[in-house]
Design a binder for these strands. Sequence first.
DNA 1: GACATATTAGTACCCTCGTCCTAATCTCTC
DNA 2: GAGAGATTAGGACGAGGGTACTAATATGTC
Lengths: 197, 197
Amino acid sequence: MSRQDSGVAVMAEQKQPNRERIVATANRLFYTKGYNQTSFAHVADELGLSKGNLHYHFRSKNELLDAVIDLRMESIKQMLARWEKQYPDGKARLKRYARILLNEEADVVRYGCPMGSLNMELAKDQRDLQQHSRDMLELFRRWLEKACKQIGRRDYRALSLHIMARSQGAAMMAALYADVGLLKAEYKRLVDWIEML
Amino acid sequence: MSRQDSGVAVMAEQKQPNRERIVATANRLFYTKGYNQTSFAHVADELGLSKGNLHYHFRSKNELLDAVIDLRMESIKQMLARWEKQYPDGKARLKRYARILLNEEADVVRYGCPMGSLNMELAKDQRDLQQHSRDMLELFRRWLEKACKQIGRRDYRALSLHIMARSQGAAMMAALYADVGLLKAEYKRLVDWIEML
DNA sequence: GACATATTAGTACCCTCGTCCTAATCTCTC
DNA sequence: GAGAGATTAGGACGAGGGTACTAATATGTC
């Protein structure tokens, strides 16, 4: 019997287990400050926990990174499954993907794409860590690939990569100039292009 | 009378002043390892110099970063000036820009775009440092803007940003998958698109 | 209540970081 | 060659990094 299931349900006040709170906070800090610029102490301080506590749950920083990526991947999978139900049409799916950056535009403009920027950081002399981060982007790519197949394109792989490149470029430039307008302009171009496929 | 000009010319064996060697090495390490992951000690070790020596030439790491960016900007300016002579036609200029990533494809595939990745790194909680890095990209953007004007486009600013976004996206995806093919594919798409303008 | 386990706090360890200081050495000018 | 200034080496420093260890506390089971 796990902890949350035992005793009277405290419902709203039931606090999240520390392990999950740690992953959630690390997730945010890895995004906003960068992986290398975030320390165990940062995460612990934000939560009012001790460094030793974090080390109990995650023996190393890599392990914490893995947990963060697992969390993101889980959330991505759920989102993609939701989209599959909401948008039966292939093109509609591609457009929905394009719109993703607009959802979190304030964050994207400040910190870039969470996946892209993390991956770029790890690509530099930390290739071992990069692998897992790549898996995350592959979730999207394969989903896009499926949608491209669905609209009868034979170059589905190339198309999926191109669409991701376009959205990565948009996120990058928007963060560079800290300008939401760039995000919207690139979104529009991309959607128009998808429409013409 | 400066040091290099004095005395008998040693020509080929004349070694670069240490200051320049430091900037050149820092430039490479900031690119391949990332700014935050590169320390004074790394740079000093590679050159067989002491940390104190580096501190003599650059009192802080920011100062070294500024010198690196200045070096890059100088080289960019020269390259753009060369291109202006070589390619009088606006579209040819845009295409030449698109080809830039193919020049250094081996590096781009491993470390991404030198400007984009640096900027992304500094965008995360180090906005003060980001400014100078942005100037570097602005050199390209204004040059593209001019070429767009030249071919009679009234949306020259938007176009210049879009072209940069495309190349940034290409670099990002190529580094993500460590695949030169992606770079070439995106290059081809971009050139075709420029041709249709 | 007693025990085993899971969790937490606190701290100690060793390393690297960015910066700074001092003393030696080199280079050029006179 | 003597003196002045530029350059270099080497190490000290305080801070913070990731990791590990120990003791205390909370939790669940019998």
